[in-house]
């Protein structure tokens, strides 16, 4: 009894939705302290290349490669985050966007290490690896009614789903804690945060690093989901795409960019029937958002309403 409805293509789209969700969370984490970083595509590529190189050339097991990719991205985050403390707003955005481009150009030109513009192929694919090791242990996916390629796509999806849930849970809990309050305080008024005894420098660098690390993690998962990466995956378009998740979904609540990433990644696929016009629809949607709901689809009052909590004295929030 084959499960025919389980379409590997749909699962692949769903996997990209999840990777983009992780990227959406990563821009939110940095924004939580009021820092707009457009360097997350760069950090993503650092994570992806690190694990690709370690697993294809140095025989690292995949989980070790993913951890290494995240850590290297985090270290790059510290290195970029500290000098960036002097910058705010649009200047920070420009500097981090520049950082992403620099990383990409390095990857294009450092051919001996990165394969240049061609990129790195034959990266171990997590679904295939899992299937291979399960077959060695005597398990056949056919025994649960799945074809090999269905099993591969499904396991990729499930691994990404678990990773995304963990990341969302992590930052959700962080948000409602001492650290999350410090982030919010820094975002709303840095000087008042200092006066409340918060080491604003520490928390800004911490948030920046967490965002970089999560991007690197998403990049590493991306490498092992597609098994092929090239600098073209991490261009300026990717950086803007991540920004749009936050702009569209809303940057005031963790669920905003999560929702934005999900919708905006799935939408072009759903609109495939009108293929040539789908980016027009996408564009109109964004303009409409700017006009009618500049804070993004999801903001804290909406979440509170949906959660059934009535915020006493609500109705007056800053249109930030």
């Amino acid at each position: 009894m084959a499960v025919d409805w389980l379409n590997p293509y749909h699962l692949q789209v769903a996997s990209f939705v999840l990777i983009n969700t992780l990227l959406g969370v990563s821009i939110y984490v940095t924004l939580a302290t009021g820092q707009l970083s457009l360097g997350n595509a760069g950090f993503m590529s650092i994570g992806a290349y690190t694990t690709a190189i370690l697993t294809t050339r140095h025989g690292f097991p995949m989980p070790a490669g993913i951890v290494a990719g995240s850590v290297v991205a985090a270290l790059a985050g510290i290195a970029v985050g500290i000098p960036s403390l002097r910058l705010t707003g649009v200047y920070l955005a420009i500097a981090t966007l520049g950082f992403g481009e620099v990383v990409r150009v390095v990857f294009v030109n450092w051919e001996s290490l990165t394969g240049g513009a061609v990129g790195i192929a034959a990266i171990p694919q997590m679904g295939r690896e899992l299937l291979a090791s399960l077959r060695d242990a005597g398990f056949a996916p056919e025994s649960i009614g799945l074809r090999g390629n269905q099993f591969i796509s499904l396991s990729v999806f499930l691994i990404l789903f678990a990773s995304t849930l963990c990341a969302i849970g992590f930052f959700f809990r962080l948000g409602s804690s001492r650290v999350g309050r410090a982030y919010a305080a820094v975002r709303m008024d840095e000087r008042a945060a200092e006066a409340a005894g918060i080491d604003t420098t520490y928390y800004k660098v911490l948030a920046f690093t967490q965002g970089a690390m999560l991007s690197g993690f998403a990049g590493a998962l991306f490498a092992h989901a597609t098994s092929y990466i090239s600098p073209a995956d991490f261009t300026y378009h990717r950086a803007v795409e991540i920004l749009v998740f936050a702009v569209f979904g809303g940057s005031e609540h963790l669920l905003g960019p999560v929702f934005g990433a999900m919708l905006l990644t799935a939408l072009p696929e759903l609109l495939r029937s009108v293929s040539d016009y789908r980016y027009i629809v996408y564009g109109i949607l964004l303009i409409a958002m700017m006009v009618f709901r500049p804070q993004g689809l999801i903001d804290p009052p909406l979440v509170n309403r949906l959660a059934g909590k009535k915020a006493a004295g609500g109705g007056s929030r800053d249109a930030a």
Partner: peptide, 29 residues
């Protein structure tokens, strides 16, 4: 007056407790 405008009254004061508490990232998560 420099309050944290979009926080509740309680949250504002809770931020003020920052130096008298110590939970870090992992404990919080």
């Amino acid at each position: 007056i420099r309050l944290f405008p979009r926080m509740t009254a309680r949250e504002n004061v809770m931020v003020g407790r920052h130096t008298r508490s110590r939970a870090g990232v992992w404990q919080s998560v």
